[in-house]
Amino acid sequence: MTVGPVRRDEATAAFFDGTARGELLLFRCPAGHFSPPYSQQCDTCASVDLTAVAASGGASVVSRSVAHRRGGHRDILVVAELDEGPWWWSKVIDVEPEQVVAGARLTVVVERADEESEAVPVFRLA
């Protein structure tokens, strides 16, 4: 399984509507700053006038690690910097660990565990 199952709650409903369309939603304030989708206010200027916008999908690796699971499976985990500025923590799929180095370019895709679950943003190498 590429990603695990996850259910929406009130705080994540709009975000998961976005991932269902294949989008990773961010917030943008009137000054043009981007903030993560869980923000209450702009994390640059504190504006509460936030509009949800889809990220371009481009990102770069800030840090990476390799999680070793039972049965020998490995997950390549990253903190990635979206081209808009916010960081996103997720995994990189269809890749060997050696390819995921600091600065490597990534693209956002969404995967879901099953039809009951919400779609989860993950990365592939660009």
Partner: peptide, 24 residues
């Protein structure tokens, strides 16, 4: 696995070990 915390786990960031590993 619900909400923002659940999303992190679903994407493989399941525990504190993973987060500190990324820091290290």
């Amino acid at each position: 696995a619900v909400g923002w915390r659940g999303l992190l786990g679903a994407a493989g960031i399941r525990d504190t070990n993973s987060m500190y590993a990324l820091a290290a």
